[in-house]
Design a protein around this nucleic acid. Structure first.
Lengths: 231, 231
DNA sequence: GAGTGGTCTAGACCACATG
DNA sequence: ATGTGGTCTAGACCACTCA
């Protein structure tokens, strides 16, 4: 039920029915409107506040965040397109999909036995203006053995895992740093050799907390990563 | 009351009394132990799960996260020392504190009137092994007019704002990217000219959602930023 | 089958912001 | 003075995990 309230409010904000800075009905009023208790409403609002879509002000009300604040759903495990706020225009060039015996760091992150295989997916993500990000992902072979044969659905690894392999990713931890473009990255991302790039190493997990994807990505610095911090 | 439970559990995990991978008592049991309802316990556990300290597995129990997962309290607005997990050893070299009329981007982020002043704080953060990060912060002059005279408490801007100016920061949004070291950054951070650096631009807010700090930092790539993503 | 976390109810009192 | 969000109660039923 709280998911239904969450989706209803999300849709109304996305549609502009609830504009930026607008005040929402009070939690009591929303509860009555949906015929649920206030704790259930709060569960939906908590999620939207966490994403930066809503702001709460004690004694005053709950407000829709500014355009900029809510444009990017922050700290969410989403497709890369949604992450940079350009899901529609993003193109994916699949460079390679193959089964490999991964290196030690990948093996450890995916908790694979020595010699166990993983599927390696290398992609270049592009916008009309040019290349954006070079991404390499590894998925345990046992989870997605048909990936090399069947390829990606719509260029999205997460969508493919969900729809073709019944693998639903729930949370991830990632390390964000910077690195200099090597020859391959410079060529594919169309930047000078040794140019600074945003480097992300991510381990994503399914609901049982088992790791299901390890990824390394290099992104042009014009596409920063937005995040939200709580005290 | 949920804060008390949160702090009790945090302390027991930090002290090693609850080791990594250990299972916590059930939510019902914790509620009885503290004499509160289960919803209150969940409020405390939610916060720890959000930080990556605890992991929940439906039907099985709540577990302390692995050393690595819980070492860094992720997505939290904390002092830089706590952020990189080396609060004790971090040294702060204050390069400059002065009142300035900031540039347009800073003025807009802090929602200052044209010509209004801000206090600029420039710091170099160091560990025993060498420099780590070069940080410039701006705070509206009205919030901290005595900062240039009195300086920082223990090298920490957030602590100074809290203790000397009654300014408590509650949340922030930040853009994370990469940039090449200019001459000054290269000299202070002891890296080659044009070396890749992690660049963060952060706007921090008080409880009323008014902006109270804008900061730009450049960090050596050996000190990545860790974050946690939820589906 | 027993115990766990996930969700929900139908209230309540409080501190706080605003008119 | 009114209404808001912040917190809390004392239950409940469910799906799920695991012995």
């Amino acid at each position: 039920m709280y998911v239904a309230i969450y989706e209803d409010l999300s849709a109304r904000i996305a549609a502009g029915e609830l504009a930026a800075e607008a005040r929402l009905p009070s939690e009591h009023a929303i509860a009555e409107q949906f015929g649920v208790s206030r704790m259930t409403v709060r569960q939906a609002l908590d999620k939207l506040v966490d994403e930066g879509v809503l702001l709460r002000r004690r004694g005053a009300g709950t407000f829709v965040g500014s355009e900029r604040t809510r444009y990017r759903r922050q700290n969410r495990l989403a497709s890369f397109g949604a992450e940079i706020g350009a899901d529609d225009e993003l193109e994916t060039q699949v460079l390679q999909i193959r089964a490999v015996v991964p290196d030690d760091q990948v093996r450890e992150e995916l908790q694979l036995r020595a010699g166990a295989q993983a599927v390696e997916v290398r992609r270049l993500r592009r916008l009309p203006g040019g290349p954006v990000s070079l991404q390499t992902s590894w998925v345990p072979y046992a989870l997605a053995s048909s990936l090399p044969r069947h390829g990606l659905v719509g260029g999205s690894l997460y969508r493919t895992l969900r729809e073709e392999h019944q693998v639903e990713l729930r949370w991830a931890e990632q390390a964000v740093s910077a690195s200099a473009a090597d020859e391959e990255a410079a060529r594919l991302l169309e930047v000078p050799l040794h140019a600074p790039l945003l480097e992300i190493r991510r381990t994503a997990h399914v609901e049982t907390n088992a790791p299901a994807e390890y990824a390394r990505s290099l992104t042009r610095p014009e596409f920063p990563l937005w995040m939200r911090l709580q005290a």
